[in-house]
Write a protein that binds this DNA or RNA. Structure first.
Lengths: 212, 212
DNA sequence: GTCTATATCCTGATAGAC
DNA sequence: GTCTATCAGGATATAGAC
């Protein structure tokens, strides 16, 4: 640790790494759609020329690949956590996974948003869709187990319930915006805090909207 | 009615109307995404040349406009139906609207799918998003009224609940495929009938997944 | 690491013959 | 109503100077 440390707090922070460029690109992809985004759009958003982008990444599709890969890694990591493995009843593991999925979605919002919007036009997109299906399948297994243990109602089809459950969770990307640094949540009316969102998802999914 | 009727059952049914061309175009838009679809793609799918398409419609965006307009008309018509107006309690009107929204979504599947995917890049897209917000707002009012009448739990934020409710309903477009003519539902394992889907949406949304 | 300039292909849309 | 031929602009990507 004898090296002099460069001043990373300086306002001038302009040389890109593949990682920092990715963050810019993903924002633009989500705003305009992947297909609706040109390299020209990316270059303007990043403040460098089109050709400079090719110094950092091989092309547009590599940016997509890195982004959806990051989202998928975050989601699959949930299954390795204690709450998804160590609890006795399947319904408790399921509740944990649902809650954490909502949390990861909000923590990695732009990357998961992009993941959920790929349509299968390219090889990268088809690979991402395949891995998403694997994730859904693992959650469906938890539902099946919880029904078998008598904790989930048996009068709804497990596959259909899984789809609607993910529909609810995944729709968070359509409107959730993370609180800016220095703001408490609750400052803007109508904006929800992340924990409130994850808790409400679990509550509605398991207990419904009706008064009990 | 003295006119001779043309034989519309003939297999050769190849001259397009704006309406029949729209049906083809919407399929392609949903498969490739609106931005990912070129006039070349459309012409191949329709079996006519690019320039022939311009005989029927002014351009690509007019096809989008007709499609999302049709979806929005179908959705807003729900509020005019008896079940959404004549019932005494707000929760009953809400249940009706939720059930019917799911039904209309499946009946007009390709058009609603396209509507739900527009991102606001063009004027048409922004207009469609604005009308969608109006629809959501009307449903949110029903939720508010049902909470006030004591039929919906008061411990969830109305706006958040509305968003999650629509998240669940709208996600149907991601996987629902209508049964082909001549097939009963239930023939393919894992494919759900439309009524089963709409009923399950209502059941999960109002009563939740847990055994009561 | 960034730029300007350029290559090559594809885009939405039009003109005009049949 | 459909076609071929064509346009002008925009797309991804590369070459090579600084």
């Amino acid at each position: 640790m004898a090296m002099a440390k460069r001043d990373t707090t300086a306002p001038k922070r302009d040389t890109y790494t593949p990682e920092s460029l990715l963050a810019v690109a993903v924002e633009v992809f989500n705003e305009r759609g992947y297909d609706g985004t040109s390299m020209e759009h990316l270059s303007r958003a990043a403040g460098i020329s089109k050709s400079s982008i090719y110094h950092h990444v091989r092309g547009k599709e590599e940016l997509l690949e890195r982004a959806v890969g990051r989202a998928l890694d975050g989601l699959f990591a949930i299954f390795e956590e204690d709450g998804a493995r160590a609890q006795e009843r399947a319904i408790d593991r399921l509740e944990y996974v649902v809650h954490r999925t909502a949390e990861v979605l909000m923590a990695e919002l732009p990357y998961v948003t992009l993941l959920l919007r790929v349509r299968g036009n390219t090889g990268t997109e088809r690979w991402a869709m395949e891995r998403r299906r694997e994730f859904d399948h693992e959650v469906a297994e938890l539902l099946r187990a919880a029904v078998a243990e008598g904790d989930l109602r048996a009068d709804v089809d497990v596959r259909l319930a899984t789809r609607l459950l993910f529909g609810m969770i995944n729709s968070i990307v359509e409107w959730y915006r993370p609180p800016k640094d220095g703001e408490r949540h609750g400052e803007h009316p109508g904006e929800h805090g992340g924990e409130q969102v994850a808790d409400t998802v679990v509550r509605i999914a398991f207990d419904g909207l009706r008064t009990s």
